[in-house]
Design a protein around this nucleic acid. Structure first.
Length: 261
DNA sequence: ATGGTGGCGCGGCCA
């Protein structure tokens, strides 16, 4: 079984002990991280190597930053969307054995109507172009990360309050549906879940305690992989730890032999 | 409750 996970850690410097603990207990084959907020020179590769993980990363100071930790090395690494001039480190594509993995930190968008929202929609357009081509080259494609979009109302604790707001607006949801229409499956929805299954809870106002969250962290799989997807769930445990990230890990398993991956 | 909390880095931005 191949176990692959995504986790927005909101600063890998602060969260490194939690990530190391989680790797030890969950032992995923691949972990995609977002919001590492580290320049590459400061990436803690040695700490992961000590646990048997290769690391690939694309970071910057203060904001953004993505990384891939994996039992087998990453090759053919890509850190930018084609045809998009962008200093923000939000993309990390890599081939790990027979699998193509694209780790994303989709722009937040701040608020509908802002420049950041327009950047988010333009970014998602470029992403769709890229993934369309990736699917041709790599039938075994996983696209995962912090999408900063709640796909449907059932992914939102209070759909009425969030209606039309950033993370839930119709243009964002339409952009996500266009990604799915390329031939990608939202693997969590292949399996029965608790009614309110979220992956992010605002730090403010005790939102996690009341399970007032959104599901914005997704693991998408191409048809060949969706067919052999054996499970997908949110691991809420780390969100309850002391000084947590505001996101929880999402974990999916695929029925491939250990020899292949 | 137009607030609230957290990370970065030291004032204000971003989420």
């Amino acid at each position: 079984m191949l176990k692959i996970a995504t986790w927005n850690v909101n600063s890998l410097r602060i969260r490194l002990p939690q990530v190391l603990d989680w790797l030890k207990t969950q032992q995923p084959d691949i972990l995609a991280l977002q919001e590492t907020k580290l320049i590459d020179a400061n990436f803690p590769s040695a700490d992961f190597k000590a646990l048997g993980y290769h690391a690939a990363f694309a970071g910057q100071r203060t904001y953004n930053g993505v990384a891939l930790l994996s039992r087998f090395p990453s090759v053919n690494i890509v850190t930018d969307l084609p045809d998009l001039e962008d200093p923000q480190r939000r993309v990390l594509g890599a081939t790990i054995n027979d699998l193509r993995v694209v780790n994303l930190y989709v722009p937040n968008g701040q608020a509908v109507g802002t420049n950041k929202y327009a950047y988010k929609l333009a970014w998602l357009d470029k992403l769709a172009d890229y993934l369309r081509k990736q699917l041709v080259t790599y039938p075994q494609l996983i696209v995962l990360g912090d999408f900063n979009i709640a796909p449907e109302d059932r992914d939102v604790y209070d759909p009425a309050a969030w209606s039309g707001k950033v993370l839930c607006s119709e243009p964002e949801r339409a952009a996500l549906r266009r990604l799915l229409a390329l031939g990608l499956t939202d693997t969590l929805r292949l399996f029965a879940q608790e009614e309110a299954s979220f992956s992010w809870w605002d730090y403010r106002a005790g939102n996690f305690r009341r399970n007032q969250g959104l599901r914005i962290d997704l693991i998408l799989a191409s048809a060949a992989l969706a067919q052999i997807c054996a499970s997908c769930q949110v691991d809420k445990t780390p969100r309850g730890w002391q000084r947590p990230s505001d996101h929880a890990p999402v974990v999916a398993e695929f029925a491939v032999s250990a020899k292949e991956n």
